[in-house]
Amino acid sequence: MTKTIDSSIENVYAGDRTEMKNEELKQLRKRLSKEQQEIKYRRFFGNKAAVFGLIIVCTVIFLALFAPVISPYDPLELDTVNRLKSMSTEHLFGTDTMGRDVFSRVMYGARISLTVGFTVGILSGFFGMGIGLYASANAYADNILMRICDGLKAIPSTLLAITLMAVLGADLKNVIIALTVVNIPNMARLARSRALVIREQTYIEALRCLGAGRLRIVWRHIAPNIISPIIVQVTFVFASSIITEAALSFLGAGVPVPLPSWGNILNEGKGVIYQAWWIVLFPGLFTALTVLGLNLLGDGIRDFIDPSSK
């Protein structure tokens, strides 16, 4: 739909510059740009799935931000008398093997998950874009960087993350480092391929002829044009990092206990799954819902930025 409008704007420029009065032209452009805005707005907010995703993500962010206020207990507080208690008004999600309140732990766990997901998304987006842009502008570096990316990509991401954690040691900081390293190659590849496409376009050539410096072209003209696919990718990395963090912590190779993370709550719950299923169910549901929300949001942003990909 937008394409038709764009092309009719072009037609207006091409065909009727002489015949159409300036005023008329202004009017038409105004009308078209308003319509375009409207379509964009409708495309995102008309997309029920994306709005649903946005609501989930906002809710989880809210819970994470206000975890200290919402949580009725200290997530680390032991209460050995009330071990493995089922759900009740006192303990909404029950208690775990050491009598800690699962609800409070899940709320605090949201902080860890979101922190990891967000930081990894931003860091890998930032470094990936930097590396991709650099590679696209420098043929020599390109060869080396892309070969390294290929090598890293040959190792499946979960496996690489586990291995890095094994080597670096279980620690929140290391989880972030490992997941960032895992996600950079894809991000760099994406940034590079987009940048190469844009480099070939005529206006970049025109800028080059005008004598614009290489750095200026890359930063001022290419970078802004590749940012949208990167943003979409960052959303998906956000989602997948939450999954991988949970998996790592579940294996005991991620966020170390007693710090509550959805993954390590699940790990503790696994051992007592026959006696206390709630310890597994709730953090599990939260993880799945958050990831679903992020995926829906990511799809929505992608369709919004690039409707043809639908």
Binding site: A49, A239, I243, A246, A247, F250, L266, G269, K270, I273, Y274, W277, V280, L281, G284, T287, A288, V291, L292, N295, L296, D299
Partner: peptide, 22 residues
């Protein structure tokens, strides 16, 4: 397919254990 993409294997595994084993 959307649900599947959002449900990591180990979580599904835990849920399956809850249902079919527990």
């Amino acid at each position: 397919s959307l649900l599947g993409i959002s449900l990591p294997g180990f979580l599904l595994g835990l849920f399956l254990i809850l249902i079919f084993a527990v």
